[in-house]
Nucleic acid binder design. Structure first.
Lengths: 212, 212
DNA sequence: CCCGCTATCGGGAATGTCCCCGAGGCGCGC
DNA sequence: GCGCGCCTCGGGGACATTCCCGATAGCGGG
């Protein structure tokens, strides 16, 4: 197989040339850009195997590059390279379609290895980061005790769950073995506590928090 | 740090003793079980660092072990060990809470390494399998043009989107610059075409398909 | 030209939802 | 014991949703 073609996107010029120098021999750097719009245009033109992209950039960040190119060029793989190891950043980046996420503390040899593995379709993460994605995927709510949810009583949470799933009051009442009136009471409490004004918004609230 | 304590779950006795023999020195095998119920009971008792679990077993499979133990013992990590490398199996297993998934073709040294990495909180996958999880996580929906959605007119889809976001008819009407009555008509059509019976189920339908 | 599809509205009625008022029982801590 | 929060219910009213019935208008194909 020929050498991997790689495109670099980073708004820090110095880092860009550093990476380019380190990668020089091992892969074929076909281009680089330091802003989002230029990156999108050049990537469309050169169609590299792998795009090494910084997550934090002006004008939409690396996420916009991944989203736009991913939609039109599904064969291009993305490896995110970031200073941040925050779960939100990792998850958000994977969600838009990156196949890997490594921090900038990575060494040159490991970076080359990561690029090659991403090209082969593998997923590559700095050691601790993979767990974030799996936690998000599996639900992993236990450590994320929502303070909004905390103030609801157990019964209210039960009712909320069913309402959010699209059940009518009558069905909730039958499922829980209580009267429709009691369901109304619980829903009213939930709406008041969550500062909402209708069961429709309630369904959306729950869906946003993946409680269903 | 002391040696990792590991519990084995597999319905094939021969494989079980094989794994036990191979792991013998490197980790501390604190027990093994060849059916789901026995496994759950013994794991609750011995609380190992890592549970090495076969995915395909009678009485619920490894998934049930992971789900039940995971709910009561969040510190216990699971490494799935399976003959299958099918995306459905991998995704389903990760979804219930496993932190890694390797196929039974793995060698002893790599298996030990995988167990230790899982204990540290890393996620471990056989090379090609990680991509499955990321694909599922990123949505990977674009090629899946929903036939149910296909039969809706553009205007109906527009109304559906807003309804699913928790808007009241009145708000939808204002947003689209039409009367509430027209919104009603569209909603009626959508409900009929999708075989649903209320706007609440509609919200759930849309949320299931990530249209919001 | 007419037919079908789509989008736009209306009246009216049944039902569901939301909120206001009130009430009693139960458990828990001070 | 007494208060307080939780869960349970009811009446009644305002409003929203759903489904009937009907109508008009544009637009494209046979």
């Amino acid at each position: 197989m020929s050498r991997a073609t790689v495109f670099l996107v980073d708004d820090h010029q110095l880092f860009l040339s550093g990476v380019r120098a380190e990668l020089g021999d091992a892969v074929d750097v076909v281009g680089a850009a330091s802003d989002v719009d230029a990156a999108i245009e050049m990537i469309r033109e050169r169609v590299p195997d792998v795009v090494l992209v910084d997550v934090h950039m002006p004008a939409g960040g690396g996420a916009r590059v991944i989203r736009e190119i991913g939609a039109s060029h599904p064969d291009v793989r993305f490896l995110a390279l970031s200073v941040s190891d925050a779960p939100e950043d990792v998850i958000a980046t994977i969600r838009v379609g990156a196949r890997g996420y490594v921090t900038k503390t990575i060494g040159p040899a490991d970076l080359v290895d990561a690029i090659l593995r991403v090209r082969e379709g593998d997923a590559v993460f700095s050691p601790r980061l993979a767990g974030f994605v799996l936690d998000a995927f599996a639900g992993a709510a236990p450590p994320a005790a929502d303070p909004e949810l905390e103030q609801l009583t157990p019964r209210e949470r039960e009712v909320l769950r069913l309402i959010a799933r699209g059940y009518a009051y009558k069905e909730v009442a039958r499922d829980l073995g209580i009267s429709v009136k009691t369901v109304e009471t619980h829903v009213s409490s939930v709406l008041r506590k969550l500062q909402l004004s209708s069961r429709h918004q309630l369904a959306r609230w729950a869906s946003d928090r993946r409680l269903i």
